[in-house]
């Protein structure tokens, strides 16, 4: 990592720690040896349509780092429902989410039980604002978008690796949700799954509520 990027990463991490809200993200597995007896690996990816164009995600150098450039797929034991979606420095919905990259397969370790895909989260503006040069303390502006989905994924007792598909989130230029489609394109991920998990059986577990 280049020194400049490392500094940015450390600064961003320090900001999270100082804010007392560093989320606990869903761990990922690169092999079966990392998967517990009571866990399954959920394989999926997220795609934004239209993708973020130039200027639609602004992460100021020094505080944003890579952390804020990632999309997050929130996974939980229950649908998010009508709970309030926090703004400001509260990153609650990120707890238990998968930190991923656009259109890139993730391999999330999950407890072996049904779970819900709750929402996609991504940051739109992460700045200390142009007037914060003389702030008394770090005062970051973390604006983000939540695109809800709330779909249930069923897990069977014999599952070790499940394929939950490609989640395509549709939006407008103001990041208003315009629907979600899930594609069961297992063949696109097959080679990567085999490389990580060998001959382990993979079950397609697309959401029960399309």
């Amino acid at each position: 990592m280049k020194p400049r990027r490392l500094f940015g990463a450390l600064a961003g991490l320090a900001a999270l720690v100082l804010a007392g809200c560093a989320p606990s993200l869903r761990p990922q597995a690169s092999g079966l040896d990392q998967v517990g007896d009571d866990e399954v690996v959920a394989v999926g990816r997220v795609y934004l349509n239209p993708p973020l164009a130039k200027g639609q995600q602004k992460v100021q150098w020094g505080i944003g780092m890579d952390y804020f450039r990632h999309p997050y797929l929130a996974l939980g034991d229950a649908p998010w429902g009508d709970r309030e979606l926090p703004q400001g420095s509260d990153l609650k919905p990120l707890n238990g989410s998968v930190q991923t990259d656009w259109n890139t397969w993730f391999f999330a370790r999950m407890p072996r039980k049904d779970f819900w895909v709750q929402m996609l989260i991504y940051f739109t503006d992460v700045t200390d604002s142009l007037d914060c040069a003389s702030c008394h303390s770090a005062n970051f502006n973390w604006q983000r978008a939540y695109l809800p989905v709330e779909q249930r994924v069923t897990v069977q007792p014999s599952d070790k690796v499940i394929f939950i598909g490609t989640y395509v989130f549709y939006r407008d230029e103001f990041n208003h949700a315009r629907g979600v489609r899930v594609h069961g394109d297992l063949k696109d991920a097959a080679a990567l799954i085999q490389a990580r998990f060998g001959a382990a059986p993979v079950r397609v577990a697309l959401p029960a509520t399309p």
Partner: peptide
């Protein structure tokens, strides 16, 4: 109301020169 409209107040204390420049 759009969920995204929720926000919290952000407080900025700043020096006089900077304030003048912003205005």
């Amino acid at each position: 109301m759009d969920r995204g409209l929720k926000m919290d107040r952000r407080l900025r204390r700043q020096g006089l020169l900077l304030t003048a420049a912003l205005l």
